[in-house]
Design a protein around this nucleic acid. Structure first.
Length: 740
RNA sequence: GCGCGGUUAGCUCAAUUGGUAGAGCGCUACAUUGACGUUGUAGAUGUUAUAGGUUCAAGUCCUAUACCGCGCACCA
């Protein structure tokens, strides 16, 4: 009996845990099992067909290159949610995909082409250029897919989507047409945010304000003009058509209604003095030079007073005004020229420096020039008949206030509401080539009085040409990338077709994403889904923080970014995942350091060695789920464990993964390894048969439970250990049941 | 200007509904050839930013201040 059959534990346990030899192999086995696909889970009996549903869409990474630590954090959190629910028996779907990221990708490829060939997109032509960007996007997509796999994401690859692929394009055109028909999308000549560097308009949300110090000039248009005005942009003043004062301002009241023709900086301007409540009498001189063509507020003032609009700056941020001292000058040069002219005419009264915010384009960094242009907009205030006369703003508000979209952490609800309050019509047309072309076509027709007019057609497909009429030509512009991203929760499930996926998995359960894109994306998804489908896109929004480097600044390659893939190669992905999740509450930024990752690599190895000890201690034994003859000591330990498991289960339900990860870590290392295993050595050596048997089953039971609990956090090492556990009838850990 | 978050051990951060503060890394000393040195044991370091208040009890709730960070608005 003492000389029982010599059994050995698998060779691999004799060496430290080797993530490199494990991770790829394990991921492959998962993929081959098909269990990332809920249909197969049902088919193979791993999930009940009538089980509750848990669904998510992956926030599609931009096809601009590679993943960074932020992606790794998001993916880890999502994968934890997905694996947890799958193990809990939910019919679980996680849809992967990538985003074409219109401006970002186009800018990136333009940069590469210019660097390598000294060519601009115009040199290549639209078709060839788009072909190049497509090729880049494809390659980038392949890289990203490889990285998402490395991260261990249990996404259903059979449902992979791309915001610019055929199905998603159909969804975009369908959505556009419906909005067009409902009068929510309109084309209008309005002042927009023009990015001279990217040569396109951008939406209000794509503006990044840079603080700087600017000069504030106080002057008069001419010697006999009755009021002084102040500005930081003298070069725009050649486009002034009015001076606005507060209607009750006693200093200026008497001039309201008067008009003046003035020679100013080499051109002629015509100024009308108007009274407008928007003017703050205490700011500057209390009188505003109104430049309708180059300022949002002035544009609005001009609308109210029916003022002339005189554009003086062009798309290249150069002066288009007919003045010998300004024509074709860059705005910065023109500014100096106007100030010089004011000085020479002795019109400048004061010059002081003030702090100001310079509007720049998020993607290109170009300084935004407000320009009046003919663009496409989404009307956020129009009442929609098919939605009980509610506006898009109403629908967005309602989703959170009444329809129960929960935002975690809830303080972002306030931020979201505040954004809706300030929201103006969304400019959706972009003058770039890479993206969804606006599904609107035009052809010329003879108007009344022989004027040339355009006939407009909006449709899901191009209209057919009529041999007796001029040919249709399509609108040149493409759509804001967030238009297609807004459809993501349902375009990925087959909309506009009424697919089984759509009815089963929409609304999705949770959307996990960074708080930095709450406006860009979260709000737009709510807008699109509530309007187009009449339901919310998700029930819960989990907003995670940004990953910062050890210095606390946003991760960027130039500033010592910690690359997740590099870290994975060094320490294993389980370590990277754990280090990202521990002590990272929702909405809080987290600092990433290699030390932290190293600590969790040690943890993975600790687990490995625990398994080695347990396996070698129970050789010949099989895990008995129903074993009940536990010793008093073991019973007490199990009771303790149950308390912990209860806490953990509650916290998993409350999205408190950072607490769970920490607790499991502490229990496994400080309790299980340091105390329980040490004591076990003594029991195995000196204890009676019953105690030894009890302890063996206790160790097995504990390891089984904690491998399962740890699996969503550290999927690779747990699955690898699981494969050698003496558990009869075991399946892959991904579909094993959650222990509680 | 409006709003939000933060300030806890040298560093990075925890502390679930208020119950005399914890972890990792780092540091000090010691130990150990049988699961693991990617280890173990022991230890040091805190007026929880400041000042008030509520409470039997405050890191946690309230008020104010300071500093750091962020969002929005303004930016003539």
């Amino acid at each position: 009996m003492i000389f029982c059959m010599k059994l050995n534990i698998p060779q691999k346990f004799l060496k430290p845990y080797d993530p490199k030899a494990t991770e790829e192999k394990v991921y492959k086995s998962w993929q081959e099992s098909g269990f990332f696909n809920p249909d197969i889970c049902v088919e193979k009996g791993a999930t009940k067909a009538d089980a509750p549903v848990f669904s998510m869409v992956q926030p599609p990474p931009n096809v601009t290159g590679t993943l960074h630590m932020g992606h790794a954090l998001a993916t880890t959190l999502e994968d934890i949610m997905v694996r947890y629910h799958r193990m809990k028996g939910f019919r679980t779907l996680w849809v992967p995909g990538t985003d074409h990221a219109a401006i970002a990708t186009q800018a990136k490829v333009e940069g590469i082409i210019y660097k390598e060939e000294k060519k601009r997109r115009e040199d290549l032509g639209r078709e060839e250029f788009v072909r190049r960007v497509d090729a880049y996007a494809k390659q980038s997509r392949d890289t990203i897919v490889g990285q998402v796999k490395k991260l261990g994401a249990s996404v259903d690859w059979s449902r992979e989507a791309f915001t610019l692929d055929g199905k998603r394009s159909l969804a975009v055109r369908t959505a556009f047409k419906k909005m067009y028909d409902d009068g929510l999308i309109y084309r209008g000549y309005r002042i927009v945010n023009w990015d001279p560097k990217g040569q396109t308009t951008i939406s209000d949300d794509e503006i990044v304000y840079m603080e700087s110090i600017g000069m504030f000039y106080t002057f008069r248009y001419s010697k006999d003009f009755p009021v002084s005005i102040a500005t930081t942009r003298p070069e725009t003043k050649v486009g002034d058509t009015a001076v606005a004062v507060h209607p009750e301002d006693v200093r200026y009241k008497k001039f309201i209604g008067k008009e003046y023709s003035i020679d100013f900086a080499g051109t002629k301007i015509h100024i009308k003095i108007v009274g407008d409540d928007a003017v703050d009498p205490k700011f500057g001189t209390g009188a505003v030079g109104v430049t309708p063509a180059h300022s949002h507020i002035d544009w609005e003032i001009a609308q109210r007073h029916k003022l002339l609009i005189v554009p003086v700056i062009n798309e290249y941020a150069r002066m288009s005004v007919d003045s010998p001292i300004l024509k074709d000058k860059k705005v910065a040069e023109a500014r100096i020229a106007v100030v010089d002219w004011l000085k020479s005419e002795k019109l400048l009264e004061k010059e002081e420096s003030i702090p100001q915010n310079v509007a720049t384009a998020e993607r290109t960094g170009g300084i935004i020039e407000p320009l009046p242009k003919l663009q496409w907009f989404i009307d956020v205030n129009k009442k929609i008949a098919s939605r009980k006369n509610k506006s898009l703003k109403d629908l967005m508000r309602e989703a959170v206030l009444e329809k129960g979209v929960a935002i975690i952490p809830d303080r972002f609800e306030k931020v979201y509401m505040n954004w809706i309050e300030n929201l103006r019509d969304w400019c959706i047309s972009r003058q770039i080539w890479f993206g969804h072309r606006i599904p609107v076509w035009y052809r010329t027709k003879q108007g009344i009085n022989k004027t040339l007019e355009y006939e407009t057609y909006c449709g899901i497909e191009a209209p057919e040409n009529d041999p007796n009429k001029p040919d249709w030509f399509q609108d040149e512009d493409t759509l804001d990338t967030w238009f297609s991203a807004g459809l993501w929760t349902f375009s990925t499930l087959g909309w506009p077709e009424e697919t089984a996926d759509l009815t089963t998995y929409h609304p999705t359960s949770v959307l996990a994403t960074g708080y930095d894109i709450i406006f860009f994306w979260v709000a737009r998804m709510i807008l699109m889904s509530t309007y187009l489908l009449g339901e919310v896109p998700f029930k819960t929004v989990y907003l995670h923080g940004l990953v910062r480097n050890a210095l606390g600044s946003k991760m960027s390659k130039s500033q010592g970014a910690v690359d997740p893939i590099l870290m994975c190669e060094k320490y294993g992905m389980d370590a990277v995942r754990m280090s990202l999740v521990v002590a990272t509450g929702p909405g809080n930024d987290t600092k990433m350091s290699e030390d932290k990752i190293r600590a969790y690599k040690n943890f993975a190895n600790k687990l490995w060695n625990i398994a080695r000890f347990v396996l070698s201690s129970v050789l010949g034994e099989t895990y008995d789920e129903k074993f009940a003859e536990f010793s008093l000591d073991d019973r007490a330990l199990l009771a303790e464990q149950n308390e912990l498991l209860k806490e953990i289960s509650r916290e998993m339900g409350e999205f408190k993964y950072y607490l769970v990860a920490e607790k499991v870590y502490a229990y496994i290392w400080r309790e299980f390894a340091d105390i329980i295993l040490e004591k076990s050595k003594d029991i195995f050596k000196n204890g009676g048969d019953a105690d030894r048997e009890s302890r063996k089953q206790f160790l097995l039971r504990t390891l089984v439970k904690f491998l399962k609990i740890l699996h969503p956090f550290a999927p690779f090492v747990t699955e690898e250990i699981w494969s050698d556990m003496p558990v009869a009838g075991k399946k892959s850990l991904i579909i094993e049941s959650w222990p509680m």
